[in-house]
Design a protein around this nucleic acid. Structure first.
Lengths: 183, 183, 183, 183
DNA sequence: AATGAATGAGTCTTCATTCAT
DNA sequence: TATGAATGAAGACTCATTCAT
């Protein structure tokens, strides 16, 4: 896993071949296949690991955030969506690109993100039904697409933005706009 | 060009091979290489054609929209960003996926979209500097990422949304939020 | 086809690999795949070609053998079963061995041989129902297995037998015994 | 040995890999290689064991069959040739197929069978030189090929025949025909 | 003596690209 | 100018065999 990350980090998705991964990781191609049945499984495992981690963090925070204000909640939502991309951004970028071949995986990731958004949105709506609108498929889908879309674009073209406080404020404002009830 | 579109439309990313394209176009692979030096050049030409068209349309509208209100302007901005994806969505989806391998192309597309957004945003700021904020790199980048990101996600997972009035309203509201001056 | 035969003739079934076949045949691996979709298809085509040829010869002879005696008929049956193995016996031997991996092909060949035997046996039974017994599945199967089994064994261990008049007489006697009515 | 048989029985030729065999046998691949220098050696040992068993049985019977009639002798010859295929026919079939790659082994088996046939034939010729002809290389080779060929074909395509009394009668008749002196 | 992780040569197959006709 | 047969580098994956522990 770590080795694959390094391969993606160094060579990008162009050299994301089984032989390269193995060689760069310092073991043989045969060994790689002791641990992963397919090339796809390598990518899948990286994706699943990242999602598991993110999922744990998000649910963990939600569980112990009873006193949090809506503002804090939203800030954390953005924080949690950004977080996987803050470190190792080259790896994330390559994963993103490699993902495009595997529609199942890309769907998997999308579904996970959608679910994260849904959780947050529902939580806000519960907190203050007057201030926040009820989450719908359309709302969540649009928000998820916009939030992750912007993050993705930053990852690829302006990775430095991801750490930028102003950028994060823009995202927070956008999310706030999305979840706020229309008058 | 048309043949390539048909190949992408029918077989998707999978059969996007030079031989397939040539055969579908009714000429030989050799002839294909008289007109395009690379496979990549085919994709690039499709992308450029689409961007040229979109560019012409956007500049055309901007040029003759002197009397338009800000609301109309924003609605048109969303309309113009959506438009290339409304027809032949399978082709667009496949192009999107094929694009991911060609970072130059993806950068080209992104730059074009960024420029479109910048044009619109500048126009709005000119119209009513109090109501709309001044476009900055950060602003435009974030908006472009969010808008196109949501559209891309819809294209892939909910193509029907693209035609949905409520979805379009969400986008318009989002863009409005983005361009509006913070108090 | 001819090239494949040569590969089998020279290297035996050990080097029956796509790369070897192509290289030995003097063209590239890519060219090989222009003509055959699978490795298996190469073998299949060789087998089918051989069976087609044998089938044509057998049916041809049967069609114009109205005046023939039973003895002549039997001699010809043996002749026709032997004939594919008389020339290029190394190729035949390698084909036989390569065949073992492809149970479909081996079944195909067996079925064809069974059918040849059935045709002959039926013809004899028609000619002289008293002297010859009626062909049954069991009879034909046993005869086919014995006749081809002996030929195969000779091909592998005593190819010179195949041309030997005494050997052929043994086969003729065996076949005669099989088709003759039990008293 | 037993494990190998089980692997062949369950998975057939396809999973006949050293790792599979070792795992099924309950020890490690390394241990397997302590006992067998090659994969081929495993197959060879299975073959040799089967031949030893058959050899013992045949010589045993011959040694204590002084009072037997020619008919009994022939029947037993057929019985003894059939016997290894009556149980575990899937194993035998797989062995047969795996054997095809190892010309040495296949030659070994053939030689053994030839020798069995020679023994029997010689015994008959001794018993009644007028009724039975003298065994020659040609005779024995042809008979061995025919007998085993038919059995092999049955094993692969009609395993039920192997137990069928009529089928066995056919074989007995065939053998009788072969050994009987030509008038 | 037993283990099993590691090895890597070798297999089939794809597809962008070239070039003689 | 058009053709399409030919090319071959490169990729995913298998499995007999080795060797440090």
């Amino acid at each position: 896993m770590e080795a694959t990350a390094q391969v993606l980090e160094r060579s990008g998705d162009a050299d994301f071949t089984t032989n390269h991964i193995a060689r760069r990781a310092g073991f043989s191609i045969g060994t790689l296949y002791r641990y992963f049945p397919h090339k796809k499984a390598i990518l899948k495992e990286m994706v699943e690991a990242a999602l598991r981690k993110q999922d744990a963090r998000i649910r963990g925070w939600l569980a112990q955030s009873d006193g949090a204000t809506a503002e804090e909640l939203i800030e954390h939502m953005v924080q949690h969506m950004l977080e996987p991309f803050l470190s190792r951004s080259r790896v994330r970028k390559s994963m993103l690109m490699s993902l495009m071949h595997e529609s199942e995986l890309i769907a998997r990731v999308n579904a996970a993100h959608l679910e994260f958004i849904r959780l947050f949105h529902a939580r806000l709506a519960e907190m203050d039904p007057l201030r926040f609108r009820k989450p719908t498929d359309l709302t969540c889908h649009t928000l998820a697409g916009a939030l992750l879309g912007s993050i993705r674009t930053s990852l690829i073209f302006n990775p430095s933005y991801l750490q930028d406080a102003d950028y994060q404020k823009e995202l927070v404002a956008m999310v706030t706009h999305f979840v706020t009830a229309r008058r």
